[in-house]
């Protein structure tokens, strides 16, 4: 017996509704986040992520309300991302009932956000979300994977591997590594960068972007070396259930709950 591999479902939330986009373009509203959360909880999901994809001031209250309603119904860890730009905004979602906060673009612009969050709430509360894009390897980007921000629109010139290590040094407790090239297209995770990051850091790594069938999750936690795999569209549209995915992972020899 030892630590089990986690299956995490990500719910993008816009105006209080679950929504799903493809490569950050064209979103379809799917329904009430609490209903979705309850369904996946009953199917045995290990963790949930709620991402406020608009993070606009006027819709923020709506989102916080979602977090509070989820916390009253769902008794597994869940994290919240999107719109986290300060330690105060971290505190707000943690008090609303989230277990962890995920920071992405704002942490690239101001890396002290990671340090500040880890100091205030502990490393286990701070997840670095990172979008990585395959590029030709250069002296500045030796891994051949560049950090991109603003939903993939803005290149940063930062090497994904170096950023992962810096985030760990700054106190991030976990890294959610999203491959922008494979996100939403369900052809499998980007195993190369996932393995590179998993081998380079001593904190858990969540593979994200590309999960389309159970074997992809198996690959992410074996070949990719990830501790967890994040999925969205493969369960949102009813093609798979979390328990069905876990049964397949178990049959492939992966320890899951």
């Amino acid at each position: 017996m030892s630590l089990l591999k986690r299956v995490i479902v990500c719910l993008d939330v816009r105006a209080g509704q679950v929504t799903k986009g493809i490569k950050f373009q064209g979103n379809v509203d799917l329904g009430d986040p609490v209903e979705y959360a309850r369904r996946y909880y009953e199917q045995g999901v290990d963790e949930l992520v709620f991402y406020d994809i608009t993070a606009s001031a006027e819709q923020r209250d709506l989102f916080i309300d979602v977090v509070e309603r989820v916390a009253a119904e769902i008794f597994i860890p869940f994290s919240v991302g999107g719109g986290i730009r300060s330690v105060d905004s971290m505190r707000q979602v943690l008090l609303a009932g989230a277990e962890k906060v995920s920071v992405n673009s704002p942490a690239v612009r101001d890396p002290s956000l990671i340090t500040g969050g880890a100091k205030a709430f502990g490393a286990q509360c701070v997840v670095l979300g990172m979008d990585a894009k395959k590029v030709p390897a250069t002296a500045a980007i030796p891994s051949g994977y560049e950090v991109v921000i603003d939903g993939g629109r803005t290149p940063t010139g930062k090497d994904a591997l170096a950023w992962a290590k810096e985030a760990e040094d700054r106190g991030a407790g976990e890294i959610c590594l999203n491959a922008i090239d494979t996100d939403g297209v369900r052809n499998g995770y980007e195993l190369t960068i996932t393995r590179m990051v998993a081998d380079a850091v001593g904190i858990p790594v969540i593979a994200s972007g590309g999960g389309g069938e159970p074997q992809h999750l198996v690959d992410a936690v074996t070949t990719g070396g990830a501790d967890a795999a994040l999925i969205a569209s493969m369960v949102h549209y009813g093609d798979y259930t979390v328990d069905g995915i876990k049964t397949a992972m178990r049959a492939a020899g992966v320890g899951v709950r």
Partner: peptide, 13 residues
């Protein structure tokens, strides 16, 4: 074993 991470975080029997 360096593949075992600290913190011990997640689900364990």
């Amino acid at each position: 074993d360096s593949s075992l991470k600290v913190p011990h975080m997640g689900w364990n029997p």
